[in-house]
Nucleic acid binder design. Sequence first.
RNA 1: GGGCUUGUAGCUCAGCUGGUUAGAGCGUCCGUCUGAUAAGCGGAAGGUCAGUGGUUCAAAUCCACUCAGGCCCA
Length: 1088
Amino acid sequence: MFPQFPDRPNYSALEREILDFWKESNIFKRSVESRPEEKAWIFNEGPPTVNGNPGIHHVFGRALKDIFCRYRTMRGYRVARKGGWDTHGLPVEIALEKQLGLKEKKEIETKVGVANFNRMAREFVYEHINKPGGWNELTEMMGYWVDLDDPYITCTNEYIESVWWSLSEFYKKGLIYRGFKIVPQCPHCETPLSSHELAQGYAEVRDPSLYVKLPLEPGQSVNGTPLPENTLFLVWTTTPWTLISNVALAVGMDIDYALVHDAETGEHFILADARRAALDPDGKWSVVTMFKGSDLARLHYVRLFDYVPVDRDAFYVTIGDFVSTEDGTGIVHIAPAFGQDDYEVARRYDLPVLQPVTPGGHFTDDVTDFAGRAVKTIRFEDRVEEGVDKDIVIALKKRGRVLKSTNDYLHSYPHCWRCDNPLIYYARDSWYIRTTQYAAEMIQQNRNINWQPPEIGVGRFGNWLEENKDWSLSRDRYWGTPLPIWVNQDDPSDTLAVGSIHGLMSGEYEREDGTIVPMETVADQVDLHKPFVDHVIFRRDGKVYRRTPELIDVWFDSGAMPFAQWHYPFENRERLEKLFPADFIGEGIDQTRGWFYTLHAIATPMFGQPAARNILVNGHVLDKEGRKMSKRLGNTVDPFEMMRKYGADAVRWYMVTNSPPWKSMLFNEEDILPTVIADFFRALTQSYNFFTLYANIDGFTYAEERIPVAERAELDRWILSVLNSTIAEYLKLMDEFDPTRAMRLVSEFTVEQLSNWYVRRNRRRFWKGELSADKVAAYQTLYECLAAVTKMMAPLAPFLSDRIFRSLNGVTGRDPSESVHLALIDEVETVAIDRDLERRMARGQRIVALALMLRQKSNLKVRQPLRRLLIPVLNDAEREDYRAMEEIIKDELNIKQIEYVSAEEGSDIVKMKAKANFKTLGPKYGKQMKSVAAAVVGMSAGQIIELQRSGSLTLTSGNDTFALLSEDIEVIHEDIEGWLVASEGTVTVALDTELDEDLLNEGIAREFVNRVQNLRKDSGLELTDRIRLGFASDPELTAALEAQRAYIMDETLAVEFGPQEKETMLDVTLNGKPCRIALERAAEIPAS
RNA sequence: GGGCUUGUAGCUCAGCUGGUUAGAGCGUCCGUCUGAUAAGCGGAAGGUCAGUGGUUCAAAUCCACUCAGGCCCA
């Protein structure tokens, strides 16, 4: 017996049962290991950061990854997938700081201690993985299959060792160097802010707007022409305090600059021509000559302030692509320590980096006049330190260097989210990876990646590579992979890198008290984190090397996962070439410059190829209004609650079929029930239940030989054709990483074609008669459709699909697999595809829809039989199409007879009109299109017939002649005399609405049968129960019913039927007339 | 401020290598069918295709700008 699917299923409970089954029968592991090793499809898991609880967007991302791993498994590939957890980094530190109530980063050292802090960080991440409501539970509950028993975890010694190895390789290639990094620094908290923190602190403020005059060194010329005496560059700044650290100016290469003369003062200025009007509104200046920015390069000017000594050439004009003429003067002042663009210029031109400012935002003693002054106003809890800008402006004014200055420049400026003070951009020591050295190769390798959607690859990611900047590698934090570089304490340029634990053990251990012991004595404590590694020193040739204190960017951890997850090269040395590159990875669009980039930036120099062949990028999950989900807005969705309410399958199905993965999806809980559960899931489970209902009665177990498709009924051949067309399209879409379209296809097939047409049209075949060959064919057809659907849907709805698959297969054993996830998706049975049949059925369905509309308009119920339906056709082929569907159309519409009328035979009753086909005519006639269209509308029936017959026709309209082909017009039928007509496109039907006595009697009989069936159902009779049936009514109705005696008895399984008077009769109304019915179960048990 | 991306019915989405009347599902209302179905079928209401301007015989579709959302960067 096939088990019934529950009428009102609790999906969440069903899923728990299936989870148990998977676990007991070890299905996941078997699904991997049952596939041949040489047919591997490599998936790499992007590790989520376990700094908090998982959200609904994780269900989305993980469902997408799961789909393709499961799909490939079902295509016969071996898809091993290791789970992974990203455990290091700032997000974890911040979450822990909050939990500990720490206010400042410093307190990690002063209050908690680094060793303690890192121990707690480790506990923190492991807890978030394992606790209820944590990552393991989410993964399991949503049915995401990754190996959770043996995941890679980035904070283990093995993982870090692999990362160290790769860093030492970078080091050996000379790709790691030390430089400055410009960070947003809070002078109050004396700490840099991460970009994440930065984003939440922008505010509108008023700042100074200062135009400074910088005199050129005398005696210089441009393009051979000497510049006049007393020529000055005009420079604009909103941060006067940075002028003290100025070392250069920057102009735009292609920007036009003007040399102007101010007759009043005798000065000459150089500024961008586009800014002249803004700075000289009265037009007092006269233009002497024009330059391009490139002409100005290397012109030297006189330094403004000379507090800080410089050791090389400086104070000249450079070229910068960041210079604009939106505001300012088109000439930008460069202070390398205080701006990213400035710093880049300094690196390119080898300019000195002046840093006369402390991390607390005060001038150093070098700046004698302003020593100790705050560069920007800082508000402390108990006092306010006024910024120095105003005094610098005064000093410049005294020296006559100011063209104009105001204090009301309004712009958006970053502030510290903790203390609200304005940040300063500030140069700090930092380690870099010289990615620019191999950027061209990264661009080249990017062409070998198949991005889905493609525009991310060429656009967002491609642009990012084009504008590549060196990767700032180091971080001044505590919980992360330590940078394995040791520095000679007497010569900072002398460094060494450690690439393994073995290498580390060749050092010595320096205890807190300064005593040095061999590493062997601490061998059992080796932990590749702070503070342990900071105690390791190396003594070589009398020199002492100590570790540079920084950690590495946590993104390097995850970018190293393709090899670090395997502890390569310390283990799996020979296997890696089989495991790299990955066939598939997928993450959110925010990872473009995150994980996707770091994978690429590491794989390119290490392996000379991209880390993945296919990358699926998914958009974000927003709330139903399209806003992003955040704790602050309170619009987050709890994934566990959703899965408990609707089941994981429904949530997964909803999220993936709702919109394509790469678009942002709007999550609306209310849509899950109507669009998934009441739609696809219902159609599937009810079709299944329909099947089991009759299969169990008939004892069908698919024991018979498979009946060849060609020998099955038309409807069977039709649904199997549609099924195979669907499978073909499905495979194509899945191979193209478009799960949304693929799964919508599965849903549409199940709901529209299988449930609402095939099963509905076929009910009689299942409930009538013995288990004939035709009935077996029907069972086999429906079974095959259901089985195929469970396989196609399995990647996205792994629970429900397995449940139904096992219910079916448990009885028939047609598939050797114990679970759908061990099975292979059916190959397309090409011979079953019959495009003509599909087209004919689609036409038939259209006819039915049109005729039903006519019935509705003329208020004729379908139960009332009608005599005739008329279908105008253009040719014999079309007539044959409809004729093949005749039985179905007649039955569906309750119509006795269908007649066809072709244009030629019936031109007196069928009126034809032609409509221009703009798509074919437009390109041919262009501007004449309007007159062509008018001429086509004016075509006579004779002309239309002529065109249809001969395939071409020349039409004259006024002086123009148009050569038409039959494809250039569309023929429409309208108005058939004396008939009720409806058209849609080129399909037209006409209905004969005249009724005679026979038809009316039949209609009454159908009404009667309907009432009896309802009564049978209400009185709880079994489907197969026979009844004794009686009725009482007026003579007219009685005669009508008697006339239809055989039909009524057959339909209602009545063994007796006739007029009867009884006390307990039920009142019904037939076509407005009263009738009473008596019904009771017949004693004998019928043979099924 | 820059780059990328999205904006189509009350809601979620198709359509967007230009082609005349812009579709589907859900929701609402009306009708109808049914011995598988919380269903099905038919109909109605509901759209200045975000806005403005342009290219074209023809624009939801191509171009420019503006507005709004999202992502990344500043």
